[in-house]
Simulated assay, not measured.
Amino acid sequence: MPDAATARPGLSAAIIAFLGKGESSLPRADDDAISASPADRPALVADVRAVVAECLAIDPDWSTHTLAEGGRVARSAMAQRHPELSSEALDALAWAYTYNWR
């Protein structure tokens, strides 16, 4: 999985496209929405899927957090873990997180 030093170019845009943020009324998992050269595409898809899975696995203390707070916890955790991600990509991850945990 990429870190700030080895971030794959286009990762933020690929996360947004994969989840459908701004295009869909609910989050999706659409490999075909990810644009990349044929040589780079399989690795980029794998990185996107790994980052999304990592985000969805964050488990705040639901006894003290609302769904909205849980989304903010997930966004903050992903921002710390992946400083290479854009604010828009982090928003897309939080959007998918709250949808999946509702």
Score class of each variant (00 low, 15 high):
residue 61 D to K: 04
residue 83 P to N: 13
residue 62 W to A: 02
residue 91 D to T: 15
residue 74 A to C: 07
residue 84 E to D: 10
residue 79 A to E: 10
residue 80 Q to S: 13
residue 82 H to A: 11
residue 86 S to L: 04
residue 69 E to K: 10
residue 92 A to K: 04
residue 70 G to E: 02
residue 78 M to W: 12
residue 55 C to G: 13
residue 80 Q to K: 15
residue 72 R to Q: 12
residue 75 R to I: 02
residue 73 V to E: 09
residue 75 R to Y: 00
residue 78 M to F: 07
residue 60 P to K: 00
residue 79 A to K: 11
residue 58 I to Y: 08
residue 55 C to V: 09
residue 68 A to Q: 12
residue 64 T to D: 00
residue 92 A to W: 08
residue 79 A to F: 01
residue 67 L to T: 08
residue 80 Q to V: 12
residue 65 H to K: 13
residue 93 L to S: 01
residue 59 D to R: 13
residue 77 A to V: 13
residue 59 D to V: 02
residue 89 A to W: 10
residue 90 L to M: 04
residue 76 S to Q: 15
residue 80 Q to P: 03
residue 80 Q to R: 14
residue 85 L to D: 11
residue 62 W to T: 13
residue 56 L to H: 08
residue 68 A to R: 13
residue 67 L to D: 03
residue 75 R to L: 06
residue 78 M to C: 14
residue 91 D to H: 08
residue 65 H to N: 13
residue 65 H to L: 04
residue 80 Q to M: 10
residue 86 S to F: 07
residue 64 T to V: 08
residue 83 P to F: 11
residue 72 R to G: 05
residue 85 L to V: 12
residue 73 V to L: 01
residue 57 A to W: 07
residue 74 A to K: 05
residue 77 A to S: 15
residue 73 V to W: 10
residue 85 L to P: 09
residue 64 T to H: 00
residue 66 T to G: 11
residue 81 R to K: 15
residue 93 L to V: 05
residue 88 E to T: 13
residue 66 T to I: 03
residue 86 S to Q: 03
residue 70 G to Y: 05
residue 84 E to P: 00
residue 68 A to D: 15
residue 75 R to V: 02
residue 91 D to V: 04
